[in-house]
């Protein structure tokens, strides 16, 4: 499948950068003229993935978060959010709604939100190496013209 446009950023795992990541991905997908709901869904899913990198991947220690975005044919948006943190020992367990290792102020809904707001979510992880979350969503309404 052809890739029509791409972006990449990396930034330190500071919680203030959650808002920065949301702004960047919104700006990138605005060229597809998404609806407010589509935009909100993608921003929320990316916010969850970045928060996971900070809270779980790096456990509030310093690290780098990488985001790669792609616009593919048929208005498919793909975001890869990657950390080089501690990894997830049991992905199935981590993706269960309400399961969290983040303490009682965490709802344990990060993956549930990603899965509900995106068309597809892929998680690959290796303990001690890091985690990559890939989010897929097709934008339905669009005025995008092929470059």
């Amino acid at each position: 499948m052809n890739t029509l446009n791409t972006m990449e950023i990396k930034f330190p795992s500071k919680s203030i950068n959650e808002g920065f990541a949301r702004s960047v991905v919104s700006s990138f997908i605005l060229q597809l003229d998404p609806t407010i709901n589509e935009l909100t869904d993608i921003k929320t899913a990316v916010s969850e993935a970045v928060t996971n990198c900070i809270v779980h991947g790096y456990e509030d220690n310093a690290g780098i978060i990488y985001i790669k975005g792609e616009i593919r044919e048929d208005n498919l948006i793909v975001f890869k959010i990657r950390d080089k943190g501690k990894g997830i020992p049991d992905i199935k367990k981590a993706m269960e709604p309400l399961f969290t290792t983040g303490g009682e102020e965490r709802a344990g809904l990060g993956f549930a939100v990603m899965e509900s707001f995106m068309d597809k979510v892929k998680v690959s992880s290796k303990e001690g190496k890091g985690t990559t979350v890939t989010l897929y969503k097709k934008i339905i309404r669009t005025n995008y013209e092929k470059p």
């Binding site: 949301r22 916010s47 939100v113």
Partner: peptide
């Protein structure tokens, strides 16, 4: 804007 951190809150 609010993500699941708001739910925790």
């Amino acid at each position: 804007f609010m993500d699941s951190s708001g739910i925790g809150l």
